Amino acid sequence: MKLQLDRPDGLNTFTAYGEGYVSVNGIRHSCNLAALPERLFPEWTQATFETLRLEDFEWLASLDAEIILLGTGSRLRFPAPELMRPMARAQKGLEVMDLPAACRTYNVLMGEGRKVAVGLLLV
């Protein structure tokens, strides 16, 4: 699906997504990635949803963001509560959603100037 939001200059915006891929600023990615408005992290983890580790969440919690989104692929799945503890320690909000919702929500929050980050599981 193509997203038709105006891209603020110089900021990472999801421009499309589909089965096993997302496009950021028109560039297609088919590996897990994390994004902040000013920076991309291709392959932020090699994990699948089933193999997510505490270290993956510690890394997300370390990002300069107030709100962190986790896109869990084509369907919504919630990680084990112990994996989300780094978010509580860092006093950051974590919203878990499927990949399409995470892309759309990130674009809206980024467009509002919010300090948002997203981690997407594509594999």
Rank of each mutant, 00 (worst) to 15 (best):
residue 1 M to Q: 14
residue 46 Q to V: 04
residue 4 Q to L: 01
residue 85 R to C: 04
residue 78 F to A: 06
residue 83 L to M: 14
residue 21 Y to P: 04
residue 57 F to T: 04
residue 29 H to T: 08
residue 103 C to G: 05
residue 20 G to P: 11
residue 22 V to I: 06
residue 88 A to V: 02
residue 31 C to F: 01
residue 48 T to L: 09
residue 19 E to H: 08
residue 90 A to I: 03
residue 76 L to V: 08
residue 40 L to D: 02
residue 74 S to G: 13
residue 43 E to A: 08
residue 11 L to P: 01
residue 55 E to M: 05
residue 68 I to Y: 03
residue 89 R to K: 15
residue 116 V to E: 05
residue 10 G to M: 12
residue 34 A to E: 07
residue 63 L to T: 02
residue 1 M to E: 14
residue 68 I to N: 04
residue 58 E to F: 01
residue 99 L to A: 07
residue 32 N to K: 03
residue 115 K to E: 14
residue 52 L to G: 12
residue 34 A to C: 05
residue 36 L to P: 05
residue 119 G to D: 14
residue 77 R to M: 11
residue 118 V to W: 06
residue 117 A to D: 10
residue 22 V to E: 11
residue 65 A to E: 02
residue 30 S to R: 03
residue 51 T to Q: 08
residue 78 F to R: 08
residue 91 Q to P: 00
residue 15 T to P: 05
residue 31 C to Y: 00
residue 69 L to E: 03
residue 120 L to W: 01
residue 31 C to R: 09
residue 119 G to R: 07
residue 70 L to H: 02
residue 91 Q to F: 06
residue 71 G to M: 04
residue 94 L to C: 12
residue 43 E to F: 01
residue 116 V to H: 12
residue 11 L to I: 06
residue 48 T to K: 03
residue 105 T to A: 07
residue 103 C to V: 11
residue 26 G to H: 11
residue 76 L to D: 00
residue 57 F to E: 01
residue 11 L to T: 11
residue 10 G to H: 14
residue 76 L to H: 13
residue 74 S to L: 08
residue 47 A to F: 00
residue 116 V to L: 05
residue 63 L to M: 11
residue 75 R to G: 08
residue 6 D to W: 02
residue 62 S to A: 10
residue 85 R to D: 06
residue 19 E to Y: 02
residue 77 R to W: 00
residue 15 T to C: 06
residue 96 V to Y: 10
residue 123 V to D: 10
residue 10 G to F: 15
residue 19 E to F: 02
residue 69 L to V: 13
residue 44 W to R: 10
residue 26 G to Y: 13
residue 79 P to E: 03
residue 45 T to P: 09
residue 104 R to K: 14
residue 2 K to V: 00
residue 27 I to T: 15
residue 39 R to T: 14
residue 103 C to M: 09
residue 88 A to E: 14
residue 90 A to P: 11
residue 71 G to A: 03
residue 53 R to P: 03
residue 2 K to C: 00
residue 12 N to K: 12
residue 102 A to G: 07
residue 10 G to N: 11
residue 53 R to Q: 15
residue 60 L to H: 08
residue 41 F to V: 11
residue 11 L to D: 00
residue 23 S to T: 10
residue 102 A to E: 09
residue 67 I to V: 12
residue 82 E to G: 02
residue 55 E to A: 15
residue 108 V to P: 07
residue 43 E to Q: 08
residue 64 D to V: 01
residue 18 G to M: 05
residue 116 V to Q: 09
residue 35 A to V: 08
residue 108 V to H: 07
residue 114 R to Q: 14
residue 40 L to M: 13
residue 60 L to Y: 08
residue 109 L to W: 00
residue 118 V to H: 03
residue 97 M to S: 07
residue 36 L to C: 06
residue 90 A to G: 13
residue 12 N to M: 12
residue 44 W to P: 12
residue 62 S to C: 03
residue 117 A to C: 10
residue 58 E to L: 00
residue 45 T to K: 08
residue 102 A to M: 05
residue 94 L to P: 02
residue 61 A to F: 01
residue 29 H to R: 10
residue 106 Y to T: 00
residue 91 Q to Y: 04
residue 41 F to H: 05
residue 22 V to H: 12
residue 28 R to I: 00
residue 5 L to W: 09
residue 81 P to V: 04
